[in-house]
Nucleic acid binder design. Structure first.
Lengths: 343, 343
DNA sequence: CTGTTAGCGCGTTCAG
DNA sequence: CTGAACGCGCTAACAG
């Protein structure tokens, strides 16, 4: 089914005037006789004329769209960031093309290509857990299309990045577990490929070392972020000979899964096992999960701002913004705190 | 900062052949000398040539994009639907333009206009709670751009719609509350403007009547869907002279808020007050909220399918698909069921 | 197999 | 104040 759009040509023909006059009347930038302008405007309204932005963009060599590639929508984290980006894009009259990689490298590459073909004027990216090669993003750089990474960044590209202090966040989370008296603190780590995983792992290990806790390799499990795997690893952790009395999880969804499994085994949280997550997803407050909050709004705004700074100017500086995290203590580590749920 | 794209023209000039030959070599559809094809392909790769899809679309009179306008991302409901739509769009090589109305009529109109200007080939819509006038959608219809409504639909337009059996869902939720012995069942209703609100209200009322319960107008509160308002109304409900012993809420976010308020007042759920929601958001399982589940995947797929059916053919039939809901009973109505949370 | 031409809808010259 | 002409990047129809 093809939509038959009304064009400037149509209006010009109907009014028996030239296309350029119609164009001028419509944009309002140039000198046009008041009467003809009026006639054109009336005709435009009565025929539902809508300017074809695409045609304009073709001429101007831009698309007035920016793309964003995120791993998934399975928690509130990325949607929350997208909402912020969307708002800023809207102010600037830009459209946001949202793509999910589903944690797959191949999909991410395909997404990037598609966005390139659609001539996005800029790109925001949080990479998939599988991504090791960055050629699909380097193309943007070579074509002078601004790109900004957030959270899960590409270390080898010199472009703006928005990060949070993952190390500090993990450190304070682990320290908190030590303070409440936990002795065997496990870490459900993220895939080694992501630098955030490494930073969080380091924060965890350094906190342990600082307090003269030994780092027990058995208590560190590196896993990919698929729900099925998480379940398997948590189960494994609970069944080793010297099981942990606390688990610091790489993110909230896995922490929530951990809680479900632990409780289904009849163990008590936080007495038997305390759990800490990372991100402060919507659900975390509801179930009382202690977690390292990320400033979602700030991440989204900052990333979008950095992108538009580049789009609008010609500056090309590889600024790295590091935002603060904030440990939120709830009942998964300290009893009878923030218990907003059906008992 | 302007991205300088490599074009067919550039390759043609570099290889000293005609643009059409380059184009043919690139598309592969036509007869080209194997050697020249090879040369073109090599050049294309070495220069990062990327076809400008926009230019093609301009010629073909389409954009290979579809738009979707949803009220918000504040629960998992719309994001989940979007994920499904996205998948189908991807299969068809379409891009999805996602817009949020934020429950505002004005924003919705602006979004629709923007999508129109960007020449979307089709539109999926769940209307805002403020929307009473549908002119901004009727334009699409007049321009023969397919449009499909889902969940929150426009009654006065004869276009495909995807609905769930809101009436039945509300009926069974209320019936469930009656069965567990509740006597004064309140309903936090949605805005009257939305037909889903009316249907759910009717389901609630008919269930009461069927069991010879009177409908007490004091127990029915119509409210808009902003969190602040919900809080006020729940508080009000709990303080009337003859307070309810159960609340059926228009959606999960408001049910979750209700639970938080009820517990903060020291009342027990479900003994003192039982709570039922609508939609089965991600969070609902975690906090043990009894709720009427909507088949999110099915809604997304069906809506997308109906849209592409129209885009690809010329059929214009106003099919209305009604999908089944499913009451999920958890601990907010029946004690010690599905308690997946930190106790 | 290849090149030329026209045109998608619009903006932007340059002449009148 | 208005019109004609050209071009954005690409496809399609028509000649060679």
């Amino acid at each position: 089914m093809k939509g038959h759009q009304v064009t400037i040509k149509d209006i010009a023909r109907a009014l028996n005037i030239s296309k350029s006059t119609v164009s001028r009347a419509l944009t309002g930038h140039a000198n046009v006789n008041e009467e003809t302008r009026k006639k054109v405007l009336e005709m435009a309204i009565s025929t539902d004329y809508q300017k074809n932005i695409i045609a304009t963009n073709l001429i101007k060599g831009r698309s007035k769209t920016i793309g964003i590639i995120v791993p998934d929508f399975s928690s509130s984290f990325f949607p929350s960031i997208i909402v912020e980006v969307q708002q800023i894009a809207k102010q600037k009259d830009y459209l946001l093309l949202i793509m999910q990689s589903n944690e797959s490298y191949e999909t991410e590459v395909a997404n990037a290509k598609l966005l390139l073909g659609h001539q996005v004027d800029g790109l925001l990216v949080s990479i998939s857990q599988e991504t090791l090669n960055f050629d699909h993003f380097k193309i943007f750089d070579r074509k002078n299309i601004p790109i900004v990474f957030f959270n899960r960044v590409c270390d080898e590209m010199m472009v703006p990045k928005v990060l949070v202090d993952d190390y500090e966040g993990a450190f304070s989370a682990t320290e908190h577990l030590i303070k409440i008296g936990k002795k065997r603190i496990a870490h459900l780590a993220g895939p080694r490929s992501l630098s955030i995983s490494k930073k969080r792992l380091n924060g965890y290990m350094d906190a342990l070392k600082q307090d003269n806790y030994g780092v027990d390799e058995d208590l560190i499990i590196e896993c990919d972020l698929s729900p099925d795997k998480v379940k398997i690893y948590i189960n494994h952790l609970l069944k080793i000979k010297n099981p942990p009395d606390a688990i610091f999880c790489i993110n909230d969804p896995s922490a929530i899964q951990a809680i479900q499994i632990i409780e289904s085994m009849g163990l008590k949280i936080p007495e038997d096992i305390a759990v800490v997550g990372f991100s402060n997803d919507f659900a975390s407050e509801l179930i009382g999960l202690t977690t390292v909050a990320q400033p979602v709004k700030d991440i989204g705004c900052t990333a979008a701002q950095l992108l538009f700074d580049q789009i609008e100017s010609d500056k090309k500086k590889a600024i790295i913004k590091q935002l603060k995290t904030n440990l939120i203590i709830r009942s998964s580590t300290v009893k009878s705190l923030n218990c907003n749920r059906v008992k």
